[in-house]
Design a protein around this nucleic acid. Structure first.
Lengths: 223, 223
DNA sequence: CGGTGGGTTGAGGTATTTCAAGGCTCGTGG
DNA sequence: CCACGAGCCTTGAAATACCTCAACCCACCG
């Protein structure tokens, strides 16, 4: 079934083993590269590092026992993720495309936080940002229609990764669906609808580059 | 509005409150009572205080422009809520029943946090707890069926407010529905179904007191 | 008593999912 | 160079989980 593409149960990459190579660099943040679809860390794994996307994109998700997946967030260039307060990660994180991350050992960070108020407040600010996103997303998942969800998604991506007026999505329709609590078909239909209404256009033939032609009408769909 | 708080900026705090993790903050808490259904604070209002439920229960929610409501959390006895990092609240909070809260001035708390690393870390811990709850709730809202949602709700309430084997719910079906992203009818049907299966029982005639008769089968529904 | 605020239940409607088919692109190998 | 399969996306048709609308019951309360 869903064994390969999203790296479901089958794949148990050796994130720790790979990171072992980096263990020499204790203090200085190091960079690491993950290939498309590979796991960066798994849910319930020890949270030894925090990550920042240098290039590429990642997804964080939870799974139900039967494979249903909910993506909690996409991590784009510049985003910091993997920040957990407890000892373990609460999400699985995977590279959506070939991705370079900068990583930092968590324990040293915590140690700094205990002695430096401003680091602690920084952590608090980052956690609060994550919380705010999650709160907004609960409203979307609990109460918005499919069209409203897709509109909100497009506006979020427009805000976060538009370059030169074009939204170059790194993720496939299934990822979008699992982020929005829909099926990929419903996402596709909503995008087609918006396309038909002249609200957005596609560039190239991959369907992953989107131009927002009428931001006003799109915003009207995002209640 | 409700301005009966005596803690003025000038007054020097002395006694420790029982605000648990925040006791180091050395802030004098005052109590206040809200009648059933009244607003404690509104979304986008200045966040001047943080709150702890002494008695009763509260709900935090967001509204869409057309009135659709998503309850993000219920606040039960002992819970701290209204903790925002920004200047304004991101939810509206209301008393579900007649409720007594202990409240603390936020600005003084922040001031302490800047100088006391342990207070800042306490704030971080509380924010992280909220984040974790929101993350779990996203999975519920995005991917679980109505029966699974109701089962998860019952188990959460069982964990958080059961006394003597009875779950005495403070909230009505509509609140539950708006928490679970369902309609009140669907919630009612799910409860009836579980009742019919012998998984739960009702006490009294208000339908608000629930006994879990078969926690095992209920847990099986919570994937 | 009559009204109001919950709660349940049924019948019908609908938004979204599910199932199925087909198209397009791209990489690989004959 | 073309054939081929895999991955991704779209679209249609049918199924269904949940919603909507409506009726009714019951407890509470002035």
């Amino acid at each position: 079934m869903f064994v390969n593409v999203n790296g479901h149960p089958g794949s148990r990459p050796k994130a720790l083993g790979e990171l072992g190579e980096l263990s020499r660099a204790r203090i200085v943040p190091s960079e690491f590269r993950y290939n498309k679809g590979t796991e960066i860390y798994g849910e319930a794994e020890p949270a030894d590092y925090i990550y920042q996307v240098v290039d590429g994109a990642a997804r964080s998700y939870k799974l139900l026992s039967d494979g249903r997946r909910q993506i909690g967030a996409f991590h784009l260039v510049g985003d910091i993720f993997g920040l957990e307060n407890g000892l373990v990660h609460r999400f699985t994180a995977e590279a959506i495309v070939d991705t370079t991350v900068r990583l930092m050992k968590r324990c040293s960070l915590e140690h700094v936080a205990e002695s430096d108020v401003f680091v602690a407040l920084d952590l608090l600010n980052m956690t609060t940002s994550n919380l705010q996103h999650a709160e907004d997303h609960m409203l979307l998942l609990g109460r918005k229609t499919s069209l409203e969800r897709v509109a909100a998604f497009l506006l979020e991506m427009d805000r976060r990764l538009t370059a030169a007026g074009v939204i170059a999505l790194p993720m496939c329709r299934r990822d979008i669906a699992d982020y929005l609590g829909l099926t990929l078909e419903t996402v596709s239909r909503a995008l087609s609808y918006l396309h038909g209404k002249g609200i957005l256009g596609f560039l190239g033939q991959t369907q992953r580059q989107i131009v927002l032609l009428d931001r006003v009408r799109l915003a009207e769909l995002d209640l």
